[in-house]
């Protein structure tokens, strides 16, 4: 029983991290029809630069803020110079974002060396409580809390703000949004920046969670985020949140009981969804 509970909490925490990555991916795809293969690279950049700032300043919070700022800044640059010129060309778009993933991963190796970097938690987060045989690790709860906060924040943004209104309308009919006098390109930029900021935040939170980071986490977690977005339904925020939890918890149990097939199970899950319900569990067809 304790094991089950621990694994579940563990899985929810991992799910929260994946959600931070998947939320941006699904938002960007839903609105802009851009599948950003480089999205995972933002995760890795967030982790590396966040940790670097954290070790330089000694403050974990500044590290988190720094990661978000770097992510947002990169998002702005990428959208403006790389994504925008290939908006309408799907083929170029897929290729360019994949190339971007490659280059950004290599850049990390140039800046920080090819070896993995180990990360320590600040002491105030590095605690755990033992309650009736269940170990509650403070940092995991912290990650879960941030995941929930971001989810609620996104829901608020989508449902209650003008930006959210435009985003929801833009998903349905971009031409009409523009014909009503809205500069949708500006909204694309905001959404892209938001997505990149969340990805970088996810990476930064991941770093002390896993204890070590390496350049390939961008690719690994990028694929996980894709899986989540496909399962949840492209463009569906709630779907992504649920799928992230599913993949997170499933992954935690799988790595515990049958570690050799953990990754394969996720892939098969995505495969099944794409085969039988291509729009995803909560997506519209």
């Amino acid at each position: 029983m304790e094991v089950l509970l621990n694994l579940t909490i563990n899985g929810i925490a991992t799910g929260s991290l994946i959600f931070l990555l998947a939320a941006g991916l699904t938002l960007i795809f839903g609105l802009m029809h851009v599948l950003n293969f480089a999205h995972g690279a933002l995760f890795a950049w967030g982790a590396y630069f966040g940790v670097w700032i954290y070790t330089q300043t000694g403050s974990f919070v500044i590290g988190i803020v720094g990661a978000i700022v770097i992510g947002a800044l990169l998002g702005w640059l990428l959208e403006r110079w790389i994504i925008q010129p290939v908006y309408t060309n799907t083929m170029s778009q897929i290729q360019v974002t994949m190339g971007l993933l490659l280059v950004m991963n290599e850049c990390i190796k140039v800046f920080f060396g090819p070896n993995q970097v180990s990360v320590q938690l600040p002491s105030y987060l590095d605690e755990s409580w033992l309650i009736g045989g269940v170990i509650l690790i403070k940092y995991r709860l912290f990650v879960i809390a941030i995941g929930i906060l971001v989810f609620l924040g996104l829901q608020y943004m989508l449902k209650r703000t003008r930006l959210g209104l435009i985003v929801r309308a833009g998903v349905m009919n971009k031409e009409m949004v523009q014909a009503l006098g809205v500069n949708i390109k500006k909204v694309f930029l905001y959404v892209f920046i938001l997505g990149c900021g969340m990805a970088a935040l996810g990476g930064m939170l991941f770093a002390p969670y896993s204890g070590v980071i390496h350049a390939e986490i961008g690719m690994d977690y990028g694929i996980l985020a894709f899986i989540v977005v496909v399962i949840g339904g492209m463009g569906s925020m709630v779907g992504s949140a649920l799928a992230a939890l599913l993949v997170g918890v499933l992954g935690a149990f799988m790595t515990f009981y049958v570690p050799s097939v953990a990754l394969a199970v996720n892939m098969l899950l995505m495969f099944g969804v794409l085969m039988f319900r291509p729009a995803g569990l909560l997506g519209r067809g």
Binding site: L165, R168, M172, N173, V177
Partner: peptide
Amino acid sequence: PEDQGVFPDLTIEENLKLA
């Protein structure tokens, strides 16, 4: 437009608010 271009998932209120 010919197909009216209303945003089906938005309420009437939201459609107008957006405009």
